[in-house]
């Protein structure tokens, strides 16, 4: 069980998802109580959904989102910069000493004196502070920061998914378009978000929204889970622009089985001239 499990449960609960398990188990309850930051996030989700007539994500919410993103990017940059600077400095000092010692003009006595001085300095430094321990602490801090960034990125993705779900449910096409844009900021692994996108693609009356969703799906590395549904949408779609884009999506990243099924269905159906021309083009390209 992790944070995402609880958040998914919360979202299903809010959306009255009939297929999801809506009962809060004792184990889940204990997990929530043990993580105060999760309690805050759940309270935020509740507050977010319970606001009626919420027009658009508020500027405060937007600001929070971008602040989180900015913090994540800054933290990552700082770690990279510090590590690079330390490495550069270490290499520089060792190179100088090595060059100086290897210079043939320095007399052996001077070399011996210098080595002694280095030994003393090293001994004192080691005595006053454990250098290796310090490096270990730095490494642990970096790892913690990295984990923090991962968590932060997860939160950002989760927040974008929540915003996307909320906006996709709006009556205004402009807001639903924003919902699609927010969904592009996530990795689209949230099953509820994907389900909502597919449902919107099937039922939305705005061509712009449908086209935007198809463009989003086009960026996925794999659509095997949605292929069957997409094939059904493509066959029954009446809007030529949307039908062509759905065909393009399936021909681009669909499996060969789906492509063949689609070509067969299109060849058997009565097509308008625009679709027929597109199909002819696809058939020509498929021979390349």
């Amino acid at each position: 069980m992790n944070h995402q499990t609880i958040i998914d449960w919360k979202l299903s609960n809010i959306n009255k998802n009939v297929t999801a398990e809506l009962v809060l188990t004792d184990e889940m309850q204990q997990y929530i109580e043990f993580h105060p930051e999760l309690v805050k996030e759940l309270a935020f989700i509740d507050a977010f959904w319970q606001q009626d007539n919420q027009e658009l994500p508020s500027s405060e919410l937007d600001q929070r989102f971008y602040n989180m993103l900015s913090q994540a990017q800054n933290a990552q940059q700082n770690i990279d910069t510090n590590q690079a600077a330390k490495q550069s400095k270490q290499v520089h000092i060792f190179t100088v000493i090595k060059n100086w010692l290897s210079t043939s003009t320095i007399k052996p006595f001077a070399q011996f004196a210098t080595l002694g001085l280095v030994f003393l300095l090293g001994f004192n430094a080691n005595d006053s502070r454990d250098e290796i321990g310090q490096q270990g602490q730095n490494l642990a801090a970096n790892l913690a920061a990295k984990n923090g960034i991962d968590n932060l990125q997860q939160e950002v993705s989760s927040l974008s998914a929540m915003l996307a779900l909320s906006m996709l449910d709006k009556s205004s096409a402009a807001e639903r378009l924003s919902g699609v844009a927010y969904s592009q900021q996530t990795d689209l692994t949230d099953p509820l978000l994907m389900k909502t996108l597919m449902s919107t693609l099937e039922h939305d009356r705005s061509t712009a929204v449908k086209l935007a969703i198809i463009n989003t799906l086009n960026n996925l590395p794999d659509i095997s889970e949605q292929e069957h549904q997409l094939l059904a949408f493509t066959i029954k779609e009446n809007n030529t622009l949307v039908k062509i884009e759905l065909c393009r999506l399936l021909f681009n990243i669909g499996s060969s089985v789906t492509k063949n099924e689609l070509l067969k269905a299109l060849n058997e159906s009565e097509l308008n001239p625009d679709m027929a021309e597109f199909l002819q083009r696809i058939n020509a390209i498929s021979h390349i």
Partner: peptide, 10 residues
């Protein structure tokens, strides 16, 4: 700059 614009004509 807050929301996208989309114009569509067949």
């Amino acid at each position: 700059q807050q929301n996208p614009t989309s114009l569509t004509s067949h």
